[in-house]
Write a protein that binds this DNA or RNA. Sequence first.
DNA 1: CCCGTGTTTGACCAAATGGTTAAACCTAAA
DNA 2: TTTAGGTTTAACCATTTGGTCAAACACGGG
Lengths: 207, 207
Amino acid sequence: MAKRESQAPGDSTEQKIFDAAHEVFTQKGMDGATMQEIADHAGINKALLHYYYRTKEKLYESVARAIIGRAIPAIRQIIESELPLEEKIRRFIDAYIGIISRNPFIPLFIISEVNKHPERFINSILPSDLPKPQFFFNQVEAEIAAGRIRPVRPQHLIVNVISMCVFPFVGKPMMRMLLGMSSGEMRVFLEERKEEVTQFVMAALRP
Amino acid sequence: MAKRESQAPGDSTEQKIFDAAHEVFTQKGMDGATMQEIADHAGINKALLHYYYRTKEKLYESVARAIIGRAIPAIRQIIESELPLEEKIRRFIDAYIGIISRNPFIPLFIISEVNKHPERFINSILPSDLPKPQFFFNQVEAEIAAGRIRPVRPQHLIVNVISMCVFPFVGKPMMRMLLGMSSGEMRVFLEERKEEVTQFVMAALRP
DNA sequence: CCCGTGTTTGACCAAATGGTTAAACCTAAA
DNA sequence: TTTAGGTTTAACCATTTGGTCAAACACGGG
């Protein structure tokens, strides 16, 4: 056997293809991207894409699965932890906004994918270990019963929190126009939201 | 002249094309849609698409402009009205969720469009009369100064409200998986949010 | 009734795109 | 040095897709 192993390990052709596909797919989507563009972006011949990943669909699934596989456990870990409710919400918001700040294209990528091909998403991309929010719901109900927070339906609470964390990134250009902010001002604004959303939620939960 | 005017006015060929394009574009996006599919959907010959709207891009812009042109004034009207703050927020949430309920594909369509082609969006689709949120901001500051609501940064408040209204629709399939809801349960859930989000915001604004 | 103008159609074209293949290439092992 | 097997490339193929065109069609006015 003669494997081409001269280059640094993370720099293999397969990895270069994956990285290029990751960038192109997340920015242009499955339909908008072309194999040629991905090849160019990786600086290699187009046929190599098919050599390593048989079809465009397979390549796309690889990228999608990697993205989802990284995103889900991060959420899951926080939502299922044993922390007291308030601390959990604090950390959830902080971690969620942090992750998205570092990967601003991901939420829209996931949303578009799951909207256009729900079956493919469920069958070949989604991991089996989805977050189970039941424990979080019980926690909320307990706090309500103890009178420590205002009565809210826990499903709505979690959707509210996720919405306030994710949407400003998904709709960033729209928000920028509405608020008349420069790119730099927007970055500061989004960073501020860690604190602002936390306070907003805590205020809403006061009994 | 011999104009084909036998059919009902709103049923003209041009209108049928527009309606078909509206449906296909909003569900599959610019890249995912094909002219043939739009023609089939309208039940006419493909060449007619080019006869009435010269290119795919032009047709797409027509649809996009119509969608945006309908969405923006609805927001603008509420946000710039002279109502007292609390009533304004109430109506805003109620109207916003109502509009999106009736057009669930629109927000994702707009978001995708503005993310992929910001220049085209700004130059040829966006109307000139954007909502001006300044009056709303002043209103919030005044209420804070009078001690009638808790101090919040008005920009964050408006982004919070919009996020909680829009995101559950944009990310509906994701939310369904997270919450384990059927399609019917989800519809009820989204309708409930008019009331729930309003209460949540009001609770967060209590001094 | 027939003509002219706007409308509709099927056939067609060129470019783009996903995918294939055979040959060239490179490297490690014998 | 030879050679076998994985790797890379350029050329090629079939299909799809946006777009065009000339002919056919329908209908109102002369």
